[in-house]
Simulated scan of single mutants.
Amino acid sequence: MKISNSTSRSHAIRPKPLPVPLDQPGRLRVGHLMYLYGCSHSTVYAYLKCGRIPPADGKDGRRYWLTSTIRPLFEQQGGAS
């Protein structure tokens, strides 16, 4: 069996459609924020660092934001709902 030295990208974070509308209670992950902002995961972390995205509401092994935290950001911008 030959072992490849190439790195698999299957673990890469990809944009994910929202599990619930922003006006309903739920948790959003980095992939959901990528989908909302139309950006890469590195841009989400840059937005987080500069304060455009608030700190995560919690962490259960992975960061998550409540829809109630993210919804006002899009209401101010007139963005997606």
Rank of each mutant, 00 (worst) to 15 (best):
M1L: 13
M1G: 14
K2D: 13
K2P: 12
S4Y: 12
N5T: 11
S6V: 15
T7Y: 08
T7P: 06
S10R: 06
H11G: 13
H11P: 04
A12Y: 07
I13V: 05
R14N: 03
P15V: 04
P15A: 10
P15R: 05
P17Q: 12
P17G: 11
L18M: 00
L18D: 02
V20S: 07
V20H: 07
V20M: 09
P21D: 10
P21Q: 10
D23H: 15
D23E: 12
Q24K: 14
P25T: 06
L28Q: 02
R29F: 02
R29A: 00
V30W: 05
H32W: 02
H32A: 00
H32N: 02
L33G: 01
L33F: 04
M34F: 04
M34L: 01
Y35E: 11
Y35H: 14
Y35M: 11
Y37T: 04
G38C: 01
G38Y: 01
G38M: 09
C39A: 01
S40W: 04
H41Y: 14
H41I: 04
H41W: 07
S42K: 13
V44S: 02
V44E: 00
Y45T: 05
A46W: 07
Y47P: 07
C50L: 13
I53Q: 00
I53N: 11
I53L: 09
P54I: 05
A56L: 05
A56M: 05
D57G: 02
D60N: 09
D60Q: 08
R62M: 12
Y64K: 03
W65G: 00
W65H: 00
T67E: 04
T67R: 07
S68F: 12
T69Q: 06
R71A: 14
R71C: 06
R71T: 03
L73P: 03
E75Y: 12
Q76W: 13
Q77F: 10
G78I: 13
A80R: 14
S81D: 15
